[in-house]
């Protein structure tokens, strides 16, 4: 089977400092990969490099496109990369405000990606927006409300709906549950797990919350100071950490 995403030797430097370096992995269709590490370990830099938001200084990000098979997205043309960003890729920001248009209604937010790829039938767009609101457990009668009238958890679910409406194959998530209280987190994780399994999505989830990766991720990468220090199956890494930093990370979680 061809990997959906092949990452080869990705490196990003900020001047003399290392953002992330020498990152290699394959992601297969339907697989969820977690990336954990402390603040400043290069997780978000890595994710932004992979999603095309930052230009890496070295390495390849090879994505298995529907039309042309595996293509290096770092060297592909910008229009093609932006097209991927609207169709086969999705990016869920930590702060819903970064990923939503706050002055556009929920329906418009969900419809934007559809209209960006050429949908021009209002009735169809609206039907799909309502359908997706339902799938992320937002009441249908909120379709014309602006996200500013939504709670934090609802905004995050709306952001997910907005991203998944074009049925992408790869979802980048940057701390999707950050800043939400625990019960809302639990519902969001439940929802995400359902959607990922149901749609057969591949996902890269950056987080510092081990519970999130325990629930969602098949595989796990642990980053420290810009380098991957340990990787493997999630349960294996979390239950039998080998690297000193991973041991510290696992033992730092409070047991209630």
């Amino acid at each position: 089977m061809t990997p959906l995403l092949q990452v080869k030797g990705i490196e990003k430097r900020y001047g003399a400092r290392i953002g992330c370096a020498d990152v290699n992995f394959d992601l297969y269709p339907g697989e969820v990969m977690g990336i954990v590490g402390e603040s400043g370990s290069g997780k978000s830099t890595l994710l932004n490099c992979l999603a095309g938001h930052l230009a890496p200084d070295a390495g390849q990000v090879i994505f298995d496109t529907r039309a042309d098979g595996p293509v290096d997205t770092v060297t592909m043309s910008e229009p093609a990369r932006r097209m991927l960003g609207r169709t086969d890729w999705a990016f869920v920001h930590q702060h819903a405000r970064d990923g939503l248009r706050m002055n556009v209604s929920a329906g418009g937010n969900i419809g934007e990606r559809l209209m960006a790829v050429g949908a021009r039938h209002y009735g169809d767009i609206r039907d799909r927006a309502v359908d997706w609101l339902d799938r992320v457990e937002i009441a249908e009668n909120r379709v014309d409300d602006r996200p500013s009238a939504f709670s934090g958890g609802m905004q995050q679910r709306l952001q997910i709906a907005r991203n998944l409406v074009t049925e992408p194959r790869l979802v980048f998530m940057d701390e999707p549950t950050g800043g939400l209280d625990v019960s809302v987190q639990a519902r969001l994780l439940d929802l995400l797990r359902g959607l990922v399994r149901q749609m057969g999505l591949s996902a890269l989830i950056v987080t510092h919350d081990l519970a999130v990766v325990r629930l969602l991720a098949d595989r796990l990468m642990v980053m420290k100071d810009g380098h991957v220090v340990e990787s493997g199956l999630t349960d294996q890494v979390l239950d039998d950490p080998q690297h000193a930093y991973t041991q510290l990370l696992v033992s730092s979680v409070l047991q209630v």
Partner: peptide, 18 residues
């Protein structure tokens, strides 16, 4: 430059929905 005009229709969508 890239002819990304989906956003223009978002404005019209908002009009109709409101």
């Amino acid at each position: 430059a890239l002819q990304e005009y989906g956003l223009m229709h978002v404005k019209l969508y908002e009009d109709i929905s409101q």
